[in-house]
Design a protein around this nucleic acid. Structure first.
Lengths: 154, 154
DNA sequence: CATGATAGACAACCTGGTTAACTATATGGG
DNA sequence: CCCATATAGTTAACCAGGTTGTCTATCATG
């Protein structure tokens, strides 16, 4: 039956893509039509306290230049702002704007809703098992393992 | 516990990334160091009978230009070759070279091995359940639903 | 046979990544 | 105190893969 090893990665990717697509469709409906898939990850990585381009690059596993460019784009569309650090004038703090905060909050809520939909379809037990299995097969700290770096170079 | 909806997409992506990374590490070891993640999908989509750039684009859900560029790259590193169709001199048949065939064969074998490793870790039953659940949540024909198109624009 | 559809190529641009080189600011040791 | 080194950020040039738009060549058909 499902002994074809090619199916597993494909289904994992498809499932991810579906969730992301649904997220963005809903975000667009809720007033965030310009959000791109990367941005959610980046804003999550910036966090409520802000960060700097270099630090952000380290967190995401990309170069500071790449992080800087992404911050440029986020700044251009009003999701983050840069302020100079008074205690170290080399640094520039990158922080989410209220608009960015709003997008992040909505993303979290939408993801919860999507998970609920999956639970309704598969049953809470099966979904818990699925998450548990994936957790077992993937690294512990999902965050800082160059996800976006990998996105791009795909 | 895991009621955080953000974890599901992240784990799906991480799991996919891990499989792909392991695939490429092994492919590199077996004489295919230049393969990029996209190429596997593209070669799979080309198939043993070959195709054309336009058709490939349709299959993958990207423009014919994008498909053409990717074929250029695959041609440059010797995985595919272009021959003109004698029956329609507008068309150029894209076919896998023996080198490309070899890469595709090895990919299939490696994916099977990786799946076996997952089965050893999770148990065959749990893995079957996982695949079944993913199958249930994703489109039927996984193939022609703009996977790569989505890759790039991420 | 002229017209419209199709295959492919080319150019310009976008995003997200890379290296490399540069400036400006901190910081710590002689 | 000052100089050397490390760090933050910017800019530039490039790559891969995607997009639109335009153009040519060929096919197929009324």
């Amino acid at each position: 039956m499902s002994s074809n090893g090619f199916e597993l990665p494909l289904r994992l990717l498809l499932a991810f893509k579906m969730l992301i697509d649904e997220l963005h469709a809903e975000l667009a409906r809720e007033g965030h039509p310009d959000i791109r898939p990367m941005y959610g990850f980046v804003m999550q990585a910036i966090g409520p306290d802000g960060t700097t381009a270099v630090e952000l690059g380290r967190t995401l596993g990309v170069t500071k230049q790449a992080a800087g460019k992404t911050v440029d784009n986020l700044e251009r569309i009003g999701y983050v702002e840069r302020t100079t650090d008074p205690r170290d004038s080399r640094r520039k703090l990158v922080r989410l704007t209220p608009h960015g905060m709003d997008a992040l909050d909505r993303s979290a809520r939408i993801f919860d809703t999507l998970r609920t939909r999956w639970a309704a379809e598969l049953g809470e037990d099966r979904l818990n098992a699925l998450e548990s299995d994936l957790r077992r097969m993937t690294p512990d700290n999902p965050w800082r393992l160059d996800i976006p770096g990998w996105f791009g170079t795909l």
